[in-house]
Structures are given as C-alpha cells and as structure tokens.
Write a protein that binds this DNA or RNA. Structure first.
Lengths: 145, 145
DNA sequence: TCTAAACATAGCTATAAAATATATCTTATC
DNA sequence: GATAAGATATATTTTATAGCTATGTTTAGA
C-alpha cells in the first residue's frame, strides 16, 4: 500500500517553492535538486498550476512560484486531488466483480480506515511539514543559495 | 492507493471458510465461487496455512478449514502480515533516495496517517465483517448449499 | 497397488499502472 | 530571430502484481 510518486512529487515541489518566496523557479532546478525525472515533474507542475497551487510563467526567464500561502495548502485536500485512485479495495472500484459486496463488512471497514487515514492528513498544511528550525538544513539539502 | 488483491483474497478465503464450519473446502470451490484465479488462490491458501489461520489437508478428499475462531482473527494483524509493502511514501522504503528526508515533515505525517488506518482495522475481527443477519444472503451469493 | 484428487512449491509470463522519455508547440525575453 | 522556458500529447520503459504452468507430494479409494 502506497501513494504514487506523482503525489509525492507534488508535495516536494510545493516544499521547494515555499523556500523560494517570490523568486521564479524552473522545473529543471527542482528536478536537479531532488535528482528526479524532469519529464514527470512537468506533468506534476502542469497539474499544480491547473489546480491553482502554483503560478507558472512561460517563456525565457520563466518558471513558477507558489500561488497560495503555505498555511492555506491542506495536505489532505492535495492528496485527494493528486492521488488518482483511492479505491482501497476492489469493492470500491467501478470494475468491482466481487459477488458478496452487498453483504460484506469489508467494504465499510476499509472505508472507515481510509477516512481515518485522510483525516490525519487533513490536520496538516504545507507550513506544518516544514519546521522553522530545520529551514537552514533544508536549504542546504536542496542546494538553494 | 490500494491494498493488493493478495490481501483481499486472503480475507475472502477466511470469510468463505467461516461459513463452512468444520467441513473441508477445496481451493477450486472458492475460486469458482468468487470467480477468481485458482492459481493465485493457491499462494494465498499456502500462506494462510503457514501463518496458522487455516488448516490444510492434502490428498484426495483433502481441502482446508479455519484453524482459528472468527472472533480471534484480527483484520489489522492479518493485513500487516499479508500486505507485502507498507511503505506508504518513498521515504519509508529501503530504497529511499529523497535528500530532504532527515528534515522533512512528510515522513512523520504519513506515518501517523498509516497508523490511523491500521488502528481502524485493529478494531475488527473476521466475525465483525460477517453480520449474522446477512448470513443467508451470503451463503446464497457464494452458492454454498 | 494404481489412479485420481487434492495441496505444495517453484518458476515463468502477462498485464496494467506508473514513471519516464521524446517530440513538437507556444510563449516571452534579449 | 535565437534561445529558454512552460504546454501538451504520445510513446516507451519499468515495476509490481496477478495469473499461469509444471512438477512434486500426499492420501483415499477402486
């Protein structure tokens, strides 16, 4: 059981941008910094822009910056938006073929469990996942000047 | 985000066997009943036997039956045993390559969320996921005489 | 004692989702 | 107009999971 890298990368991009303030950052910079695929990041960035989390600027000297305050970016909401398929067991999928679903207690139980999972994420914002005391170390690890 | 069919099938086998009491059931019967792969079920059954949840009998007229009371089979424990990889984000994996892990708040947050997820499952036993009132319907759906 | 029916076990193959790559287009700066 | 950036679509690769094949072992019963 795990979330996709897509969701993970989305969160990482936001963490990176939160360190940069108003300065424009390029996809290349973030890809280099985390040593991850630039191509995959392009999709991530595209969606973060569409969803309003970031603002992108095209053309030479372009890039992106946060478009929301870190304390306004809720992790639970973001994960629900980026995680493509949250059907934790087959019976929640639209392709469900399990015959006992109508009388099976597994479905409500896993529903409750997923709800508890997301409820934890709902408690946190982007600001919460970046502790002030670690900021200098974070900047160093990301090689941000 | 989802659990594997392997875990799902494990639970379904136990539900099936719980309906049968002491009678021996074959893998073929269960595969036919749920209309799922017999071959995959063989692995599932093998592991359930190894873990002590069921008892298997080899040879002609063989089969399997529950080896624990339904109220003693905890879903949370079972899921931890059958779900191969519970590293919800890369930073929990032994192949983690994310540079900011030491100072990143995502790791403890997702840890807390996974814990909340499993805590819900820990509240339930096999008996809880099979409501008495649905038993006749369940037997019919599984085509158990 | 032979055959068939069952589980045991290992290894292989197919599939589907996700990740990554490629290619081309659009936009903006210098 | 060249270059550097994102926008977008499509193709390929990778990986985990699911499913398949094959053979071995055990037991019941003819």
């Amino acid at each position: 059981m795990h979330i996709t890298r897509y969701t993970d990368y989305s969160l990482r991009v936001l963490i990176y941008l939160a360190q940069q303030g108003d300065r424009l950052t390029t996809i290349q910079e973030i890809a280099d910094s985390y040593d991850i695929s630039k191509n995959h990041l392009m999709k991530v960035v595209h969606q973060l822009n569409k969803k309003g989390y970031i603002e992108t600027v095209r053309g030479k000297k372009g890039g992106m910056r946060l478009h929301m305050e870190p304390e306004s970016i809720n992790v639970g909401i973001l994960v629900r938006e980026t995680e493509h398929d949250l059907s934790i067991v087959e019976c929640y999928s639209d392709k469900n073929a399990c015959k006992i679903t109508p009388v099976c207690g597994l479905k409500p139980m896993f529903g409750e469990a997923l709800h508890a999972f997301l409820a934890v994420l709902d408690k946190y914002t982007l600001k919460d996942v970046m502790k002030d005391q670690y900021k200098p170390q974070l900047l160093r690890l990301l090689q941000i000047a």
